[in-house]
Design a binder for these strands. Structure first.
Lengths: 166, 166
DNA sequence: CAGTTTATGTCAGCCTTGTTGACTTTCCAA
DNA sequence: TTGGAAAGTCAACAAGGCTGACATAAACTG
């Protein structure tokens, strides 16, 4: 795994050693990525699962339980537990669907939106600092590698969501 | 990436919208990042915690429980449970410290090393594909952003480990 | 209209992996 | 030599995954 490559480009960045550094960087960076929201959440007695639900409900207001399920990649029983507490606490509202009354459409209440802003601002602040430190070109590369790392199915979901207005 | 900015550089990459895309990319990519090892682990009745322990024991053979604890960022009780099963299953060996007999020094057995190779090769394969697809420049940016995203303390640990031979 | 499928919710029970508290063994310093 | 600190272990609890079974309501299909 080394030395000069085909196409006149070095392949040194594909050595096991380089890959290992990337793997460890991913592991440690993800800890930082979730650290700030985690602190806020634990004050309120919530966990990461609540954050994820709130995030995607904010992103697609009115989405159905089923849609949320498939974005999050968890079972309905697992999501339901989280959703139940968010609804009981008045952060999420569940409305019966107009055209299909079996569906429940989810949206954040004003209080839910407030929590969402608090969580996402904390997460953005760290991201902003990292982006600023690394510069625009690094950020473009960062996004490229992450997108290439996703499962095909997940990437399709991500791309469909990516350029959507919230 | 265009426009004029302070210092002659565009700041469009720091908009909330761009940050949000990065946050979601991180979320979905991490799922892909762990997906392959997770499949192998669940066949064997292990979880991600076992993977992390095996990874870092392989990286620093002979490290103490305490050292492993601080790399992983969990409590010793939590780690102990995982370690106990790995030792019972003959994947990890625990030796009483020579100079300080309170310490336990951990290393992989041959079977443990075999599992480690299987797990890390699966993870590297995905990483390699992503790196190859994105190219060396993107990879450099990827690493820069990840490093900037870590907590200061964690980054120090990561950097100390980064260029160490395993 | 009867029967089936779909969307959702709920209960029960299991597992992994985090937590805190209490305890033992060992080391070291006063 | 004794008391505290450090390393590790055991016990018990909680969050949040999972599966399986089942209920309800609404929609769809023959």
């Amino acid at each position: 795994m080394s030395e000069a490559g085909t196409g006149g480009e070095s392949l040194l960045f594909l050595t096991d050693e380089q890959l290992r550094k990337g793997i460890e960087a991913m592991f440690f960076a993800y800890r930082g990525f979730t650290a700030d929201p985690d602190r806020i959440l634990s004050e309120l007695g919530y966990g990461r699962a609540h954050h994820r639900a709130v995030h995607f409900i904010n992103r697609r207001p009115g989405l159905t339980v089923n849609a949320l399920l498939s974005v999050l990649g968890v079972t309905k029983q697992s999501l339901n537990r989280v959703l139940r507490t968010l609804i009981a606490d008045g952060l999420v509202e569940s409305r019966v669907g107009k055209s299909d009354r079996r569906e429940r459409h989810l949206r954040l209440t004003e209080r839910g939106a407030e929590l969402e802003r608090r969580l996402s601002e904390a997460q953005r602040a760290r991201m902003r600092a990292a982006y600023r430190a690394a510069g625009p070109q690094a950020v473009a590369g960062f996004r490229q590698v992450l997108e290439a790392m996703m499962d095909d199915e997940i990437r399709a979901q991500y791309l469909a969501l990516r350029d959507t207005q919230s």
